[in-house]
């Protein structure tokens, strides 16, 4: 359904006056050669720490940020070559849900107007009755019932969980096929988090949706996705079926990361072994050549100074590491 090929998003970094005189330009390579596919009806989790480029990737796919280069194929068309009118058409099929339901909803608009806005912008319905019915159905879909009770209210009158439901209703009202969900539950309390994740799963089944689920939380990715792609400093380190990646990570970075994920079970937490790793994720400016993880990797060798490619080492398992070969 979706194929991303060698996507790059580079932002110009601030350079000093002296550097600019010398013609030096520096870039933050937020996304630097990312490729993956998502099958229809699948949930792909894009997992990474802060600065890994996961959110930039999600936004670039929908062209909410203009990519520097690459291709994004959606149902046979390259999204990056669409003109303005075609882009509008594309956005009816591909939507995004943001992390913060407190910021993503206009506080001055009623819930009705927020949910109906995409219909108005796209002039979907001719009559007010049709629009009303669609909004009512969208609110029912996200279990804000009875919908009349919510339509005239404002975002501040709702709880965090209810607000995220409104955001989902708005994203779904144009009946899209593909959703980028960018940390959709990170700002919510644990008890509400599970409700929203369950709702997203129900809606996926009901409407045959495909999700790109962006999260920093590997444990959450384990519970919500079919496959996991792990990003580090703008590149994908590993892609594979969720349970396989989680129980048998192949890339050293994935191994390190998984060994440090906190476990909500004191006995298991005590008995597991953490893999020691020096330092913290560096800034994505002026990255050294070679593997991004090379300077911190406990298994690094001379060959790692060359950039590894993401290759399939076992059926369905893609790894970008010189030391992991089929």
């Amino acid at each position: 359904m979706l194929e991303v090929k060698d996507l790059r998003v580079w932002f110009p970094a601030r350079t000093s006056f002296w550097q600019s005189l010398k013609g030096v330009s520096r870039y933050v390579k937020a996304v630097d050669g990312v490729s993956f596919t998502i099958k229809r009806g699948e949930v792909l989790a894009l997992v990474g720490e802060s600065g890994s480029g996961k959110t930039t990737t999600g936004k670039a796919i929908l062209r909410l940020i203009e990519p520097t280069s690459g291709e994004v194929w959606f149902e046979g068309v390259n999204v990056l070559s669409l003109n303005k009118k075609e882009l509008k058409e594309f956005r009816r099929k591909a939507q995004i849900i943001f992390q913060d339901p407190f910021e993503s909803l206009d506080p001055r608009m009623t819930i009705y107007d927020i949910v109906a806005e995409p219909l108005k912008v796209n002039k979907v319905y001719g009559s007010a009755d049709e629009e009303y019915d669609a909004v009512a159905k969208a609110l029912e879909d996200v279990r804000l019932v009875p919908p009349e009770d919510f339509m005239t209210r404002f975002p501040h009158e709702l709880s965090g969980g209810q607000r995220q439901r409104v955001a989902i209703a708005r994203a779904l009202i144009l009946r899209p096929k593909f959703i980028v969900a960018d940390e959709p539950v990170s700002m919510l309390d644990a008890s509400i988090r599970t409700q929203i994740l369950e709702l997203m799963e129900d809606l996926r089944k009901e409407y045959g949706l495909t999700y790109l689920f962006i999260t920093h939380d590997l444990a959450q990715a384990r519970y919500t996705s079919d496959r996991i792609a792990v990003m580090y400093l703008g590149r994908i380190m590993e892609i594979g079926p969720t349970e396989e990646v989680v129980s048998n990570p192949l890339h050293p970075y994935t191994k390190v990361l998984i060994s440090h994920v906190p476990i909500p079970d004191p006995k298991l937490a005590k008995s597991r072994k953490k893999i020691d790793v020096p330092g913290e994720t560096p800034s994505p400016i002026d990255l050294p050549p070679g593997c991004r993880f090379y300077p911190r990797c406990p298994f690094a060798r001379e060959v790692c100074k060359e950039e590894p490619q993401l290759i399939e080492v076992e059926p369905g398992r893609w790894v970008s590491c010189h030391l992991v070969r089929s």
């Binding site: 209810q162 599970t194 409700q195 384990r222 349970e243 476990i263």
Partner: peptide, 24 residues
């Protein structure tokens, strides 16, 4: 009990969530 079950784990069995209904 419900709160603990709301936290996914990277190891062990993949339990299903027992969502807590309603809002705080």
């Amino acid at each position: 009990r419900a709160l603990i079950s709301a936290f996914p784990s990277i190891t062990g069995e993949r339990r299903s969530f027992e969502p807590i209904k309603g809002d705080p």
